[in-house]
């Protein structure tokens, strides 16, 4: 059976992290869980340690979602997992539908399966800037990558070792989801999406406020453009055997 690691990036998520871990224990008891605490100033780390159902890595200071997720991918490589899943700590991602995205990767339908947002709750109305930004970005990514992915910024995604092994080497710093798809494309890795129902946030603050929308679009568009010009320095690890035992101190490609 495939060893699955659910990676939860967490920055000041003390209001919701316990519920997410509880839900994981209920709905996905076979998956290991890793919380990567991105320098939280609240007691997120203490809550996770007290519950004991998840492993935890505490980053020494706040590094942003990209570096946080990459730490999780490095851990997954070092521990020899077959599949890694990204899942938010704020309770928006439907843990009970995890198997839908994981099973697709197990069945080798694609290298990555993205659970895309079809929010049923009408209380969730993102700002106009955010919606326009996301739609523009999705079109840009789709024009580069193809495959008709509509929700390129969804952080609810499962991937095989070829993908997270690549991400352990090179991963964007901030707003990484869309650019990560371009990195995959450049390494010949394929992503598909399946619809999932997302929940409204349970607590904490969104990491993307409407004021950041302009920066978001410019930064990610430029990053995608530059990413297409960069040289590929590593071939993805497609091997099924466990060759990744001691990758903890592997050199990271600079971006």
């Amino acid at each position: 059976m495939a060893r699955v690691l659910v990676i939860i990036p967490a920055y000041n998520e003390s209001e919701s992290i316990a519920d997410v871990l509880d839900a994981l224990k209920r709905h996905a008891p076979d998956y290991d869980v890793l919380v990567v605490n991105d320098g939280s100033t609240d007691n997120t780390s203490a809550i996770v340690k007290r519950m004991g159902s998840a492993d935890i890595i505490d980053l020494p200071f706040n590094m942003g979602i990209g570096s946080t997720m990459q730490t999780g991918y490095k851990y997954a490589v070092a521990q020899g997992y077959d599949i890694a899943v990204q899942c938010d700590a704020d309770g928006q991602h439907p843990v009970e539908q995890l198997s839908r995205i994981v099973d697709g990767v197990v069945a080798k339908k694609a290298d990555m399966i993205i659970g895309s947002r079809y929010v049923s709750d009408t209380a969730y109305t993102p700002s106009i800037f955010r919606r326009v930004g996301k739609s523009l970005l999705s079109r840009l990514v789709d024009s580069v990558v193809g495959g008709g992915i509509t929700d390129t910024t969804s952080g609810f995604r499962a991937m095989n070792r070829a993908v997270f092994g690549t991400f352990a080497r090179t991963y964007p710093d901030d707003y990484p989801e869309a650019e990560a798809l371009v990195i995959m494309h450049r390494h010949g890795l394929k992503a598909v999406e399946v619809p999932v129902d997302m929940q409204p946030r349970q607590g904490g603050q969104s990491s993307i406020g409407p004021r950041r929308a302009a920066y978001y679009i410019v930064k990610v568009s430029m990053a995608i453009f530059i990413r297409m010009l960069k040289r590929i320095t590593h071939a993805p690890d497609r091997g099924e055997s466990d060759t990744a035992g001691s990758d903890l101190v592997e050199k990271t490609e600079s971006r």
Binding site: V36, L59, P60, T71, Y75, L248
Partner: peptide, 14 residues
């Protein structure tokens, strides 16, 4: 700095 911080965190976990 990023790589170092990540290594420190991973080693702390171990």
């Amino acid at each position: 700095n990023r790589v170092l911080a990540q290594e420190v965190a991973l080693l702390g976990n171990r």
